[in-house]
Write a protein that binds this DNA or RNA. Structure first.
Lengths: 157, 157
DNA sequence: AGCTAAAATGTGTATATACTTATATTAGAG
DNA sequence: CTCTAATATAAGTATATACACATTTTAGCT
């Protein structure tokens, strides 16, 4: 790969190439677009896609700490902390000091549970649309590739 | 798909399932992680991955407007406007009024060009690592699926 | 017990992102 | 030519995100 990138004119071509090939760009772009679809679909439950995911994660790990949650979400602790605070303000979860007073204990509230229950069928609706559009097979491949990629990113890099 | 989601206990199982299956969550998660890799790699050029992409887009479409740029990037105009302003402040591009004084004309500066030139081999380095790790084939499939998905999201939904 | 290192989180700051609303400018109907 | 509708963008607001640094609390060594 011994290119020489000099004259400004060449950038037109290079730009096209990087746009097509850049995994980061294409991943972010698709995530941007898809997030809007999920947000739209979840509107009746007054949740955004990201908030749905966070609530679900809390539901699955009831009563854990910020750090324990952040790990599998591949998210910085500070990010998680702030996102959680928004849901706390909405009354969907509680954040309290645990035994170890460094650790915060996060729990779903009743309201949080019922919001999740309302959101679930909405989420399934989008998922099914996607499956219909892409086909089960490709969807499965996509998910698998995303998961193995993020697995690798967390461990090796 | 006629589930009954009621008792709180079931949410543990549902949480696991949604976490595995949610395209939006997995896309965002991978994008988060991968963005950090690109940001890290581009540090010597003092660029973040997103800024690299934006600069490249400008290089490919020199002298267009915000709106024209936003379209293929799948990005809201207001987002693009703000992201561009940061690069303008760094002296990497200029934003000026065009003929039509509603339209802003965006151009790469000399400095912007030279920063891109410095960044390009860094970008290639990450790309090659990814290709080595995932294998050319899977990488190609991933890119193709992302692109057709975002294509669909922009048109149909 | 007392001090130091490790652990968990929060805060400050900066960027990325979209939606809604406001503003300015042009184009088009009459 | 004038008023109105369409176009392009900016600004206000809220969320999502990470990194560096500060704070608090626990654990472990001596």
């Amino acid at each position: 790969m011994e290119h020489v990138y000099s004259p400004k004119e060449n950038f037109k071509e290079i730009s096209r190439k990087t746009g097509k090939a850049c995994v980061c760009f294409n991943l972010r772009k698709t995530a941007r677009l898809l997030s809007q679809i999920y947000d739209q679909a979840l509107k009746p439950a007054e949740l955004k896609g990201t908030q749905f995911s966070l609530l679900m994660a809390v539901a699955g790990q009831d009563n854990t700490s910020i750090g324990k949650l952040a790990q599998p979400l591949g998210m910085d602790r500070s990010t998680l902390s702030r996102n959680a605070k928004i849901l706390e303000k909405k009354g969907l979860l509680t954040i309290e000091e645990g035994e170890d007073r460094r650790r915060q204990s996060i729990k779903l509230t009743e309201k949080g549970t019922s919001v999740l229950r309302r959101a679930l069928p909405l989420w399934e609706g989008v998922q099914e649309s996607l499956a219909r559009e892409m086909g089960e097979e490709r969807l499965k491949t996509l998910l698998k590739d995303l998961q193995s990629l993020s697995q690798w990113l967390k461990s090796d890099f």
